[in-house]
Design a protein around this nucleic acid. Sequence first.
DNA 1: ACCTGAACACCGTTCAAGT
DNA 2: ACCTGAACACCGTTCAAGT
Lengths: 204, 204
Amino acid sequence: MSPARKQPRKSYHHGSLRETLVQKAVELLKKEGSEALTLRGVARAAQVSQAAPYRHFADRRALLGAVAEDGFTRLGEAMLGGVQKGGSREGFKGFAIAYVEFAMANPAQYRLMFGPEVANHSDLPSLQQTSRGVLGFVAEGIRQLQAGGLVREGDPWSMAVALWATLHGLVMIHLDGISEGVAPPLPVLLDDAMRTMMYGMAPR
Amino acid sequence: MSPARKQPRKSYHHGSLRETLVQKAVELLKKEGSEALTLRGVARAAQVSQAAPYRHFADRRALLGAVAEDGFTRLGEAMLGGVQKGGSREGFKGFAIAYVEFAMANPAQYRLMFGPEVANHSDLPSLQQTSRGVLGFVAEGIRQLQAGGLVREGDPWSMAVALWATLHGLVMIHLDGISEGVAPPLPVLLDDAMRTMMYGMAPR
DNA sequence: ACCTGAACACCGTTCAAGT
DNA sequence: ACCTGAACACCGTTCAAGT
């Protein structure tokens, strides 16, 4: 959301172009799909020249990285909202449902977040920090479940990766239409998978 | 691999251009990365004009679909090779290791298989059939484990999706560098995740 | 039937020039 | 400091024309 800007527009040629570009890129991606997400198109949407974005992004990949980062940030917020009561079984389910709902509501941006265009976050430090923050959030959830006796002992980071991996894979297999028609619908798949994970991570 | 062709080249202008194009595309993807995978570039590599591929592929996406399909086929073969003794715990581990090894050996093609460019296999019937075949192969493995008493009762398709999802997600989180530095290295993550899945799917 | 050559509209990126 | 205009090399796609 961002606090209301003091002088909304029109300082020199724009208020703050960087933000506007990312915002327009997210909109373009949502409305027109990933093929429409071009540097020139985003510049047009922001009503600046095609060269202007280069003052704020090194290249196309850097802009896409910022869009992916926006996605991870919003995904994290959605997950946090889904947890509600932390540490409980209901929180666990709510978190998983919120995750899948975010992906279904923003499929193109979700794909971009894991897509080849921004592959390997290592040279996009800000993006890497944000995506790791999401992993850290999941790991923290695992720690709370461990403290509550619902999850066995073990490296919370490793469990967080496994849990996130299962959710991500589920979303992709569904989005790609691989399971369509042969496996149960997504809500059932999600429920089954989360039950398996919960049993698998339970104390014994 | 493919059986040695009878008349290798030079019939009219080419032997069978379609195969050659897919093969060159796979090579380009591996050697030059995904940005280099252009229709014109593939045509150049196959030594035909830029318009020639349009006799065999409706558009760029159709060619990428064929490359993705080649990937699913080879992934399936690798998994089959990794199973060795089907139905046993060793087969289960071998299958998971073969999966991850394929992805690590062919990262660009692996990303393409799940990437936005071929998103939603629904309108690429041949690709959809092949990717579903891989899912069917995993489901068959689940059935054998059920028959052997190592996996509890339940829809094999749903369990296959969950298992595949976990492997895919693990690969992506690793390839994107999200877990880098904060979580254990890939072999440990894989071992932990597969242990969790096996416990989660075990009879009780 | 299968391929070529030329053309069109578009893209990422660069760079001198403007304010 | 920030943006524009023009240019370059490249791309996906189409289409008349060749064999």
